[in-house]
Measured scan of single mutants.
Amino acid sequence: GYDPNALYCICRQPHNNRFMICCDRCEEWFHGDCVGISEARGRLLERNGEDYICPNCTI
Rank of each mutant, 00 (worst) to 15 (best):
G1R: 06
G1P: 07
G1Q: 05
Y2L: 15
Y2I: 15
Y2V: 07
Y2R: 15
Y2C: 11
Y2S: 13
D3I: 10
D3V: 05
D3L: 09
D3A: 01
D3C: 08
D3P: 14
P4A: 07
P4M: 11
P4Q: 09
P4S: 13
P4V: 05
N5K: 04
N5I: 04
N5A: 02
N5Y: 01
N5P: 01
A6E: 03
A6T: 08
A6S: 02
L7H: 13
L7C: 08
L7M: 13
L7D: 02
L7Q: 11
L7F: 11
L7S: 15
L7P: 06
Y8H: 11
Y8G: 08
Y8T: 15
Y8A: 10
Y8F: 11
Y8D: 14
Y8Q: 09
Y8R: 13
C9I: 01
C9V: 02
C9P: 00
C9L: 01
C9M: 02
C9F: 01
I10F: 05
I10R: 11
I10K: 08
I10V: 07
I10P: 09
I10E: 06
I10L: 07
C11N: 01
C11P: 00
C11Q: 02
C11E: 01
R12S: 11
R12G: 15
R12D: 07
R12A: 06
R12C: 04
R12V: 03
R12I: 02
R12F: 05
R12K: 14
Q13N: 08
Q13G: 04
P14V: 12
P14M: 10
P14S: 11
P14R: 08
P14N: 10
P14T: 11
P14A: 10
H15E: 11
H15G: 11
H15W: 09
H15I: 09
H15C: 11
N16V: 08
N16C: 04
N16R: 09
N17V: 03
N17F: 05
R18K: 10
R18G: 13
R18D: 05
R18P: 03
R18L: 13
M20D: 02
M20Y: 03
M20I: 12
I21V: 14
I21Q: 05
C22M: 13
C22R: 13
C22K: 12
C22F: 14
C22E: 11
C22N: 11
C22Q: 12
C23P: 03
C23F: 00
D24Y: 07
D24H: 14
D24P: 13
R25C: 05
R25I: 05
R25W: 04
R25A: 14
C26R: 00
C26Y: 01
C26V: 00
C26A: 03
C26H: 01
E27D: 10
E27K: 15
E27T: 10
E27P: 10
E28Y: 06
E28L: 08
E28M: 08
E28F: 09
E28V: 10
E28H: 07
W29D: 11
W29A: 14
W29T: 15
W29I: 15
W29R: 14
F30R: 03
F30D: 01
F30P: 01
H31M: 01
H31T: 00
H31V: 01
G32Q: 08
G32Y: 02
G32A: 12
G32D: 12
D33R: 10
D33S: 08
D33E: 09
D33G: 09
C34D: 03
C34S: 00
V35R: 03
V35S: 03
V35M: 09
V35Q: 05
V35N: 05
V35A: 08
V35W: 02
V35I: 14
G36R: 08
G36I: 06
G36D: 11
I37Y: 13
I37Q: 13
I37V: 06
S38Y: 05
S38L: 07
S38C: 05
S38A: 08
S38D: 15
S38N: 04
S38H: 09
E39F: 09
E39I: 04
E39S: 08
E39D: 06
E39V: 09
E39N: 09
E39M: 04
A40T: 07
A40W: 05
A40V: 06
A40M: 10
A40F: 04
A40Y: 07
A40P: 06
R41T: 07
R41W: 02
R41Y: 08
R41I: 06
R41N: 15
R41C: 12
G42E: 15
G42N: 15
G42Y: 12
G42Q: 12
G42S: 08
R43C: 15
R43N: 12
R43S: 13
L44D: 08
L44P: 13
L44Y: 09
L44V: 08
L44C: 09
L44R: 13
L45C: 08
L45V: 11
L45A: 03
L45N: 12
L45H: 14
L45F: 03
L45K: 05
E46Y: 12
E46W: 04
E46I: 04
R47M: 06
R47F: 05
R47N: 08
R47H: 08
R47C: 07
N48D: 05
G49I: 09
G49F: 04
G49A: 12
G49R: 08
G49C: 04
G49N: 13
E50M: 06
E50N: 09
E50F: 09
E50C: 02
E50I: 06
E50A: 10
D51G: 13
D51R: 10
D51K: 04
D51V: 02
D51L: 03
D51Q: 14
D51H: 05
D51S: 12
Y52R: 04
Y52H: 02
Y52E: 05
Y52A: 08
I53N: 15
I53C: 12
I53W: 10
I53S: 11
C54N: 01
C54L: 00
P55G: 02
P55V: 05
P55A: 13
P55M: 07
N56F: 01
N56W: 10
N56E: 10
N56K: 02
N56R: 06
C57E: 02
C57M: 00
C57Y: 00
C57V: 00
C57R: 01
T58N: 07
T58D: 14
T58M: 07
T58V: 08
I59W: 02
I59S: 10
I59N: 15
